[in-house]
Amino acid sequence: MSVNVATRRIRRAVRVVAATAAVGLIAGCGSSIQGSPRAEGESSPGDNEQFTALLEECSAVTEGQIAQTVGADAIERGFFGAICRWDTIGSNGPAKVTFNWFETGSLDTEKETGEKLGYAVESSTVQGNRSLVMRPPDDPGSCGVTVGSPSGGVVGWWVQFTAAAADPCDAASTLAELTVNRSI
């Protein structure tokens, strides 16, 4: 067999392999999406509006109310998401405030988690709703209050005073009350 014949066979084999691979890639990447295209941000009647209030839960209590509750002169929002955080400074020293809202959470899960972390967990009530008060054993400046949300799930507030100048449980309880009782 001559070199030219062998070279042609190799080139033909390479082209067949390349063509087969290209067809495989094109076929593998194709897909169909049902529905009608719309411009970004446009909605139609009947659309599922489950995300219209996304992140609004972080404003369930105003920054002014948070600052007043923890004795802060200044407040700075840190992170908003499933958990909302603020840093404050004031007469009680620096404080960290955290709010969480778990739409499918339960007080039983929160209690179990707190106990696994070694926290002291006490049953309580906030505005007539069952709640939990949690304290980490090695941080007397920290306290969390979690309450069953009237609309489902749980909401919780954690306050951590670094100077331990005030009772963090009082502050967390007040913030929980403000969250549950929107008429205050």
Results as ranks from 00 to 15, higher is better:
Ala13Val: 08
Ser36Asp: 10
Arg11Phe: 13
Ala176Glu: 04
Ser43Phe: 03
Gly41Pro: 01
Val121Tyr: 07
Gly156Trp: 02
Thr20Asn: 00
Ala27Gly: 09
Pro94His: 06
Arg77Lys: 14
Arg38Lys: 07
Ala120Trp: 00
Trp157Lys: 09
Asn181Arg: 11
Ser91Lys: 13
Met1Tyr: 11
Asn181Gly: 10
Ala172Ile: 03
Ser124Asp: 13
Ser124Asn: 09
Arg12Leu: 14
Pro136Leu: 07
Gly90Ala: 09
Ala13Asp: 05
Ala176Asn: 03
Thr109Ile: 10
Ser2Ile: 01
Glu56Met: 01
Glu115Phe: 03
Ile26Asp: 00
Asp47Leu: 03
Thr179Cys: 05
Trp101Lys: 11
Gln127Ser: 14
Ser91Ile: 11
Gln68Glu: 15
Val16Leu: 11
Leu54Lys: 08
Ala53Asp: 15
Gly46Leu: 11
Thr20Tyr: 00
Pro45Ser: 10
Gly41Ile: 00
Val16Tyr: 05
Thr52Asn: 08
Arg85Ser: 15
Val70Asp: 04
Gly64His: 10
Val23Glu: 02
Thr7His: 12
Val126Phe: 02
Thr179Tyr: 06
Ser59Arg: 10
Arg77Phe: 07
Ile66Ser: 05
Leu55His: 07
Gly64Ala: 15
Gln68Ser: 15
Val126Ala: 04
Thr62Pro: 01
Pro37Thr: 06
Gly24Phe: 06
Ala18Thr: 09
Ala13His: 03
Val61Gln: 01
Leu132Asp: 02
Gly148Glu: 15
Ser151Gly: 00
Tyr119Ala: 07
Arg85Gln: 15
Thr104Ala: 12
Gln65Ser: 11
Val16Ser: 01
Gly90Asp: 06
Ala6Asn: 12
Leu25Met: 11
Ile83Trp: 08
Trp157Ala: 04
Gln50Ser: 11
